[in-house]
Simulated scan of single mutants.
Amino acid sequence: MRIKLNLLIISFAILISICFSFNLEQAKASENLKFVNKYGIEITESDYNRLISLGFEDEQIQNMNAEEYDINKEMYGETINVLKQYVKTTYLYDQTPPIDKSVKDKSVKSSKSMLVEENEPELVDEKVEYLSKEEFEQQLKYDTQNQLGKNKINNSIALSPDEGTDSTSYKIITVKLTKIASKEWKVSTTLEWKKVPATRSKDIISAAIRYPDDFVINHTKRYGSQYYESTGVNAKQQSKTYNELITYGANSGNWLNEGYEGDGLVQNLRNNFYDAGYNYKVTYFKNYMYFYFNLDVKSYSHSNVQVSGSYVHQINTSPFSVSDISLTYGAPSITIGKNDEEKFDTPIYARAYVPY
């Protein structure tokens, strides 16, 4: 009798286990699928909300490949702080007339390798202005309308950089700091060019941590990208567009690996190019990078965790030494070696913090 009772109990336990497993699989299968992204990754509603909590935007989730998805797998953000700075930079160059030339672009792995460049004018002066959102939009609109007038006279449809003796760029720098857990954070820096610069070479996008002795950067959990849009015109004045997303994985050779205070990416900005009968002018850039970092001390004596996101633009195409670049939370946030200082403009920055 006791044996039969034990067998009955075991059979009942097995039945309960099977039913539970079946219901669990059914629940997983019935979870709402939000979309399948560009790289074939199935993003469910809960997965989408999880990635949003980490500070990602819809566009970034749509373009997330398997490597980046795995970096951020099974992680949840608790608190996010975002700060934007609206920056206008005016460059005054010498009055040497531009000379067109065509060369091969060896820095970008793309089928569209033929680019169109201009000679490098000498920078005479520079002015950096941090504007309110309203001031930024008003001045950008005014300059854009003036540029449209120039393009109409020159029979061109693309919004190209200013030409002649001065050039004005409009850019928005955004830093996001996300608290992941009690001892882990994620910082991202985004630079959005609303009006692209005349000179495009190797720029640096980065982030640094305040009180770096208390933290350690996880160099295996980092990622970056450069997105650009371009408009091409052929001899018949027909136009077409071409957009591309260039990515930088955790093991990319473009990372600075700059010690313990921060990290950053060297990104070669896409230049104008020629392809299949069309002259393309790049009209928009969006540069992006992020990394995770962890607390490395038993006791943290500050009430907030603070970061500074920074960006510096190279104003000529001369080579420079990456080993002489350093990152700090304070000003200047990106320090260039003395031999290379004149090759870059003034670094711009934005700062964010979250309560510890």
Rank of each mutant, 00 (worst) to 15 (best):
A350V: 05
T89L: 05
F344P: 07
K104A: 03
M114H: 01
Y48F: 15
D345R: 06
L159W: 00
T178N: 09
I80F: 11
S160V: 06
L269W: 00
G277E: 02
V297N: 02
Y39S: 14
F285T: 07
D263I: 10
P97T: 03
P319L: 13
S169W: 00
E229I: 03
E120A: 10
S323M: 07
V312W: 03
L159R: 01
Y91W: 14
P121N: 12
V124E: 09
S323F: 03
A198M: 08
V82D: 03
Q226W: 04
Y288Q: 12
T144E: 14
E342T: 15
Q306I: 01
E184N: 02
K150W: 08
L15H: 02
P212C: 09
Y170H: 08
V124S: 13
K127N: 07
L51D: 05
T144C: 13
T168E: 10
V116T: 04
S102W: 03
K34H: 04
Y248D: 01
L54E: 06
Q85I: 00
T174I: 06
Y93P: 12
S169C: 11
N155I: 10
I315Q: 07
K88T: 02
W193T: 09
I205C: 01
H313R: 10
T283K: 07
T168K: 10
S21E: 11
G330P: 00
H302A: 05
Y242W: 15
E120N: 11
M64D: 09
I16T: 12
D214I: 00
A235V: 05
S167L: 06
L24E: 14
V36D: 00
Y93A: 02
I334N: 05
Q85R: 05
F215E: 04
K101H: 15
I153A: 15
F285V: 11
D166K: 08
T317V: 12
I205N: 01
R50P: 08
E25C: 08
I153F: 11
D94L: 04
N251V: 11
Q314V: 08
A29Y: 02
E68H: 13
N146K: 14
V312R: 01
I16N: 03
I18F: 15
T317K: 14
I209E: 06
Y223H: 10
S301W: 13
P121D: 13
E67N: 14
S156N: 14
S225E: 09
Q237E: 13
V266C: 08
P332M: 10
E117Y: 02
S201N: 01
S21F: 06
S239C: 00
K176D: 03
K141V: 02
E117C: 06
V187A: 14
F344G: 15
K133C: 06
W193C: 14
V307M: 09
S132L: 14
T189E: 02
Y311W: 12
W185M: 08
Y227I: 07
F22K: 04
K28T: 14
S225K: 04
E42L: 06
S21A: 15
F136E: 07
Y284W: 01
I217A: 11
N271V: 06
D296S: 15
H313F: 13
I9D: 11
E163G: 13
K183T: 15
S230T: 02
S308D: 10
T178G: 09
